[in-house]
Each structure stands twice: as structure tokens, then as C-alpha cells.
Design a protein around this nucleic acid. Structure first.
Length: 511
RNA sequence: GCGGGCGUAAUUCAGUGGUAGAAUGCCAGCUUCCCAAGCUGGACGUCGGCGGUUCGAAUCCGCUCGCCCGCUCCA
């Protein structure tokens, strides 16, 4: 554990030192849980996006990509459930310092009262056996009735308080009920606070007439509200998918662990629309597909595992995560959810528009079921970066730090360097650079010894280095040095393009 | 939000009351030329920020911002 935490620190330092990730607004002391991608990070991130898009959109005939706006009609978030679900009333116990959801505390209290009734019922059964009329007992027994009244009263008070945004009322209710902290046993509570995880701003130039509008907390809704547009304009036939890469925003109470949990983050997701009843088949299909995608990055299988959700969200009938062994342990990287027809039904209801699909195969109209794959781009970035970060002991008893990034994702694909700065070698090297830079992001470096330059490229993860030496001038050959093996291979200049093309060929990874 | 740890150069750190250092890195030049060689020169820090104590603060105190860890949260 300690070694792993250490590892995260090292990765953060390395990421900063070599232009991968910077703290946002650093000169102003930073902004909590917001990060910027630097010159290397932006390239890596872009390459991850491209690779995902290629695998999901380009490789699947029945998946298309869109780019929806971050701003959406406010009703969207009522329909999706985010307005309610993303604003929990929270309360802290001052003695145990534990935080609870106020509604959960009250619900637990109600559960205790219900339990009393059940005990009474159980007693009755025990005493009277078969003669016991449970239904009548529940309807007439004074204790049971009194408890039921209590429950109804509490529910009514809670609902009233919540509907009126009366947080003080919620606190009073908790105090009146004598609810104690399960840990400390004390009733010493802070005020109830509302946390809304959605960022809001105003749309409309005139302040009085402005409407509150949210920054989307997830990208999925942009797909749902456009599903019919895409289906009709793209002549899509079920089953089909809509993919999207974009930013989402969550005002996390605690956001930490570098770029793992940020307030502004990017998701890559695909909603797959299927015929009702076939969702489990597709759920299994995408579980496998997405796992294979991660595997294709060439990171050891032991870094990944599935985690099935036991407790399902209100919209799902099956859900699992693909978890990655980050420096801080196994954490969610991607979620695969069978979302049923919940979202589309909700949007039908709130918009009053039909969101049905006519299925010519079965001659029937229906609201499709949805299987979602949603992967965090920043998390994928962190996963790849942390798996790639390697400190190696070399034979000559020195060390090197190398980013063993998948070659096709590396920010710089190839560095071209002259062995010395004399004898026309730089000119020759630049000729080669000119050939390659149309297809690949290249580096040129002539400063310092060759060994030092190799190490510099290792640190940023450049998979290939081309060295122009004196033999180049004689026979037009160069050496290509492999980042991971450190082996050099002498090849003809006119073969370089073919060799790189082969080494970076996505056909090999995308199977 | 609570608790713990921390914040000094690009990075890793030393410096505990007398106004700042090392190593690595970076830049220029010389030399060397295939895995962080050497030499010379150089740039970069209002010691996270604000305030207080003091003749004097990187150092002591308060507040604040940020990072890491635990709790909590993460439909």
C-alpha cells in the first residue's frame, strides 16, 4: 500500500515534469480537483479518444457518433432523475464526525418502527397459531395502528420539509424523533445541508428573466434526447448504437486522487438500443467487447477485473464495472449498464413526445431498451499512464524511467536524431523528419549524447528513435531503436515508413 | 465536511528566528559520440497566499488555498 501511494506520487511528479498533467490555475495556487493536460497529455488523451472512436464507431456498422451540447433543457435533468437524486440532504454528527444522509437516517428510524409491528405480528402467530388472523390484527391492533400513524406522520413531515426546501425542518424532525448516531450514540447534530452535485449557471442575458441551467452531469442524456433524430436521419435499424465523447461536470463533495475524480471530466460512452427482452444478450455482448478493448491496450490482464453491481440503480436491471488496479487500488474504470427503457420512457413522459421505434421485423412499435457502456477518458488516461510508468535497473547498474505506453497511443511516435551535430548529419536527419512528419508526430533532438537523448525519449514514452550516423551518409541506412528492448536495428531509409506503419498498425490491436 | 500528513527552484529534498542551499534537470558554448561522460558559463525561488508576534520570520502563531491518506460521498 505504502509503495503504491508512493507510486502515485511518482506518477504525478512525472506527469507534471514531462508535460502530461498540470494542476489547473497553478500560479493562483490551483483549483481543487481540476487539472489541465499539457503538451504530452493532450496528445495521449487525443490518441485514446481516437482509438476508442475507431473501435466503437468506425469498426461497427450499426454505431454512429454524435457530439451533443453541454447545456441541455433543464427538464432533461428532471426526467433523468438527477435533480432529485443528485441533491441529498446531509447531516453530520458532531461527536463521531460521521456524515449521514438525512433521508436515510429517517428511513432507518421508520424501519425500526415497522420492525416493532412485525414483532407484534410474530408474537401473535406464536401465541395463537393457525387461529391468528394476521390481516385483522394489522387492521385493528392498537399498537400496530399507533405505529402506522407514527410512520405516516413522519413521512408527511419529511415530505413537507423537503418539498419546501426546509432543511431546518428536517433537522428538527431528526431531533424530535430522537435519532442518535449509530457510532457515537449522541444526538449532537449539525445543521442539514443540501449538496447539489450539478453545477448551475444562468442562461439569458437579462438577470431577472434568466433561467437556471445545468452543466450536464453525464453525457448519456444528450444521446437519449437525440435518439429519434439519429434513428430517422441515419435510417438506423435496431439494434444500433450512438456513441459520444464529451465533458461532464459534477460538483463532488470530495474530489481527489489526481485525475481519477475531477469536477470536470470526460466520458466516452455508447448507448445501444435494442429490442425489449434482448437486452441481456447485448449486455453480455458489450461486457465482453469492452473488456477486449481494454485488453487490446496490451496492459497485463491482472490489472483488470469485473465487479457486478448487487444493488442496482433505479434505472438498471443489470450493471457491472470494469475495474482497474490503479496505484490506489482497484477502482471503477468503465460501467456497463442495462438501463431498460427507463430513460426514454422518462423523456416521453416529460416531453410529451413519442420516442418509439417501429420494428418491421416483428411489425410492432416499442420504446427500445438501452445497454450503455460508459468509460472515463481521464481514468483510462490514468490507467494507461500508471501501468506504463516503469523504473528499470539496467545492466550497467544505472536506472532509467520509461513510459511503456502502447506505441499507437504514444504522444510522440518517433524521434529523429543525428549522432553528432557535424558532418551533415543534422541535415540528413531533418530530411528524414520531413518525410515522416506528415504521418506521425515526431521529435527532433541533436543536443547532448545519444544515451541522454534516448533517456529523454524514454521518459515521455516515445516508442521509436531513429539515429542518423556516419554510415547513413554512405549507404542511406539508419538505426531504429526500440524503447522497451533498447535494441537497435539497421534499416534502409526508404523502408522506415513501411516499418513504422507495420509497428503502429491498428489491425494488430483491433483484431 | 471531519481527522491525519504535507507545501522551499522544473523534479526530489536539506535548511527551526539573523533576509536560501544541494542533487538531478534545463539553456549556451567547448569536447566526446550509440544508452543520463566531462569542462566552462548561465537562467529559474517575494520559501503556496494573507495577516500577526518580533529589531528581524522559510522557521513561531492565526486564517486561507492546494496536494496526499483515512472516514464520508460517488443516482
Amino acid at each position: 500500500m505504502a509503495a503504491n501511494e508512493d507510486n502515485l506520487k511518482k506518477i504525478i511528479s512525472h506527469a507534471k515534469e514531462y508535460g502530461y498533467v498540470f494542476q489547473s490555475s497553478e500560479i493562483y495556487d490551483g483549483l481543487s480537483a481540476v487539472y489541465d493536460y499539457g503538451q504530452m497529455g493532450a496528445e495521449l488523451k487525443k490518441n485514446i479518444k481516437d482509438y476508442w472512436w475507431k473501435a466503437m464507431v468506425n469498426m461497427n456498422e450499426n454505431i454512429v457518433g454524435i457530439d451533443a451540447a453541454i447545456f441541455m433543457h433543464p427538464t432533461t435533468w428532471k426526467a433523468s432523475g438527477h435533480v432529485d437524486a443528485f441533491s441529498d440532504p446531509l447531516i453530520d454528527n458532531k461527536d463521531s464526525k460521521k456524515r449521514y444522509r438525512a433521508d436515510v437516517l429517517i428511513e432507518e428510524h421508520l424501519e425500526k418502527i415497522r420492525l416493532k409491528t412485525e414483532k407484534d405480528v410474530a408474537k401473535g402467530i406464536k401465541r395463537f397459531g393457525d387461529d391468528f388472523d394476521e390481516e385483522q390484527f394489522r387492521a385493528t391492533n392498537p399498537n400496530v395502528l399507533r405505529n402506522q400513524t407514527k410512520i405516516d406522520d413522519i413521512n408527511a413531515r419529511f415530505k413537507l420539509a423537503m418539498d419546501n426546501d426546509d432543511l431546518a425542518g428536517v433537522k428538527t424532525l431528526i431531533e424530535d424523533l430522537g435519532i442518535a448516531c449509530p457510532i457515537s450514540g449522541s444526538k449532537n447534530w449539525t445543521d442539514v445541508k443540501q449538496f447539489n452535485l450539478m453545477f448551475s449557471t444562468e442562461i439569458g442575458a437579462v438577470a431577472e428573466a434568466a433561467n437556471t441551467i445545468y452543466l450536464r452531469p453525464e453525457t448519456a442524456q444528450g444521446i437519449f434526447v437525440n435518439y429519434l433524430n439519429v434513428q430517422k436521419s441515419g435510417r438506423m435499424k435496431i439494434p444500433f448504437g450512438i456513441a459520444q465523447i464529451g465533458k461532464a461536470f459534477r460538483n463532488e463533495i470530495v474530489a481527489r486522487q489526481f485525475i481519477f475524480r475531477m469536477r470536470e471530466f470526460e466520458q466516452m460512452e455508447m448507448q445501444f438500443f435494442v429490442r425489449p427482452g434482448e437486452e441481456m444478450k447485448w449486455y453480455e455482448h458489450w461486457k465482453e467487447q469492452r473488456f477486449n478493448w481494454h485488453q487490446s491496450l496490451g496492459i497485463d490482464e491482472k490489472y483488470y477485473r469485473f465487479h457486478d453491481h448487487v444493488k442496482l440503480a433505479h434505472y438498471a436491471n443489470a450493471a457491472c464495472d470494469i475495474e482497474f488496479d490503479f496505484p490506489m487500488g482497484f477502482k471503477e474504470l468503465e460501467g456497463i449498464h442495462s438501463r431498460t427503457d427507463f430513460d426514454l420512457k422518462q423523456h416521453e413522459e416529460h416531453s410529451g413526445k413519442k420516442l418509439q421505434y417501429f420494428d418491421p421485423e416483428i411489425n410492432e412499435s416499442y420504446v427500445p431498451y438501452v445497454v450503455e457502456t460508459s468509460v472515463g477518458l481521464d481514468r483510462t488516461f490514468l490507467a494507461i499512464l500508471s501501468a506504463a510508468y516503469t523504473e528499470e535497473k539496467l545492466e550497467n547498474d544505472t536506472e532509467r524511467t520509461v513510459l511503456k505506453l502502447p506505441a499507437f497511443l504514444a504522444p510522440i511516435k518517433v524521434a529523429v536524431m543525428p549522432l553528432t551535430r557535424k558532418d551533415g548529419l543534422p541535415e540528413k536527419a531533418r530530411e528524414i523528419l520531413t518525410i515522416l512528419k506528415y504521418d506521425y508526430n515526431c521529435n527532433y533532438d541533436e543536443k547532448d549524447s545519444p544515451g541522454k537523448r534516448y533517456r529523454r525519449q524514454d521518459a515521455i514514452g516515445t516508442p521509436f528513435c531513429i539515429m542518423v550516423d556516419h554510415q547513413t551518409l554512405e549507404d542511406n541506412t539508419v538505426t531504429i531503436r526500440d524503447r522497451d528492448t533498447m535494441q537497435q536495428e539497421r534499416v534502409a531509409i526508404d523502408k522506415i515508413e513501411a516499418i513504422l506503419k507495420d509497428k503502429l498498425d491498428l489491425r494488430k490491436v483491433l483484431n
